[in-house]
């Protein structure tokens, strides 16, 4: 049940996309999103889509796995589609009955909106699928470093994010163990009304909270034992360095952005 969650999951690999500097990938995703929102008509959408397909092909992430990540937001996608379909102004009426008036413009709007959301999700998921949480937080910390001058605790924030991501799988395993243990003592999570079911969660939540606090405590002690004192003067084992591949990636992203802007001017 809990094993099916793929949000934020990382699939280890050794493709060009996996090897890119995390900073490059983060910036690339931002450029990709900007390009996606600047896209106006079929030609520009096709261009961005082609780029996405290319990136997925390079990453060797199986399309089926990637598409599965859309399931949790399926309702949002459908709702957006329906709303755009029914509430868009336009002159070319295709179908009209009762208060519903579907126009060609509405149809196009709905299509583009759905495409935009789907591509937005897939693009950002591709980032987490190909970048390990540690690399991701590392990259984020480097990119946000200038903010440290404004006394924003960048290192501490990224450390917290890193720890949180690290413990998601651990807590999932733990939750499953506790559920099994309480089931073995006859706990019943499947029958009864809402109040009863909510009450049935207490035997799971209490041990889970306690063990989270215990883990946090142990982790803090372990970090202190190794003289952790925050980001000041801290050096890295793995220095992030841009390589030729990163500059090539920047080139591709800028070209994509430029092409979409030109196409937008041309109304395509």
């Amino acid at each position: 049940m809990l094993k099916d969650v793929t949000i934020g999951q990382y699939f280890p690999g050794d493709t060009a996309l996996h090897r890119l500097d995390p900073r490059t990938k983060l910036l690339a995703v931002i450029v990709y999103i900007v390009a996606l929102f600047l896209a106006k008509w079929y030609v520009s959408y096709a261009l961005v889509l082609a780029f996405l397909v290319f990136a997925v092909a390079v990453s060797r992430v199986r399309p089926k796995v990637l598409l599965k990540s859309l399931r949790p937001i399926l309702i949002i996608i459908i709702l957006t589609g329906v709303l755009n379909l029914c509430y868009s102004m336009g002159d070319h009426v295709l179908v009209s009955f009762w208060i519903i008036r579907i126009t060609r413009e509405g149809l196009e709007n709905a299509f583009f909106m759905i495409l935009r959301i789907v591509m937005l999700i897939l693009g950002t998921f591709l980032l987490t699928y190909t970048t390990s949480p540690i690399a991701l937080t590392d990259g984020l910390e480097q990119l946000l470093r200038p903010l440290a001058k404004l006394r924003v605790p960048v290192h501490e924030l990224s450390m917290m994010m890193c720890i949180a991501l690290r413990f998601i799988p651990t807590l999932m395993v733990e939750t499953e163990n506790i559920i099994s243990a309480q089931k073995a003592r006859g706990a019943d999570f499947e029958t009864g009304n809402l109040v009863r079911r909510a009450k049935a969660l207490i035997p799971i939540l209490v041990p889970l909270f306690i063990s989270s606090f215990r883990r946090a405590d142990e982790l803090a002690t372990a970090m202190e034992c190794r003289c952790y004192h925050g980001g000041e003067g801290r050096t890295k084992l793995k220095q992030l360095r841009y390589t030729a591949a990163d500059f090539a990636a920047f080139g591709v992203m800028l070209a994509l952005l430029a092409a979409v802007i030109v196409l937008r001017r041309m109304g395509l």
Binding site: N177, S180, A181, A184, R185, G186, P203, V206, P207, I210
Partner: peptide, 28 residues
């Protein structure tokens, strides 16, 4: 068929030891 898991002390949740031991029999 009573099953005691590994490190079973991590599944204790009640306010008193008495209430925790009573959890199984109560469910029966």
């Amino acid at each position: 068929v009573g099953l005691v898991f590994q490190y079973p002390e991590y599944q204790l949740f009640e306010e008193t030891v008495y209430a925790d031991i009573a959890f199984g029999p109560k469910n029966m």
